[in-house]
Amino acid sequence: MAVIKIKVNGKEISREVSDSTLLSDFIRDNLLLTGTHIGCDTSQCGACVVHLNGKSVKSCTTLVADCNGDEITTIEGLSKNGKLHPMQESFKKHHGLQCGFCTPGMVMSAVDLLQKNKNPSEQEIRDWLEGNICRCTGYQGIVAAVKDAASKM
């Protein structure tokens, strides 16, 4: 057990957690931010993607003990003052989600892409989303959403 100090969605948090706690479990079970989902146990599906110090990572493959002093943004922290982030708006506009389960990870991953590449091509978007599996949309709405969001961010 150790006390972890961490900034989550802009808020300083200090909690005592077991050393073997995964970031995803910490976010879901300790902070009760259940927007970060667990869809697999081999770090493939990407439903758990959050931003760690501004970069997308799989929170199911990260120890919270390893994030001491770091800054985390989850899907709950993306929209500010009740206004959707342009990526969220764009997913809505282009029907980039159906059941919604992969969506938080997908959105967080897509936001990271646009941080690195402001105007990605369709192929670059598809390549980047390699680490996020969606079973509902066939990715078409998602790709359209990311492309459109790029033009607005």
């Binding site: 931010l33 259940t34 929209s79 969220q88 809505k92 919604g100 938080p104 959105v107």
Partner: peptide, 12 residues
Amino acid sequence: EDKKFLTGKGRY
């Protein structure tokens, strides 16, 4: 239904 899923407020 999109807004709740997009903001992490879905409840599975």
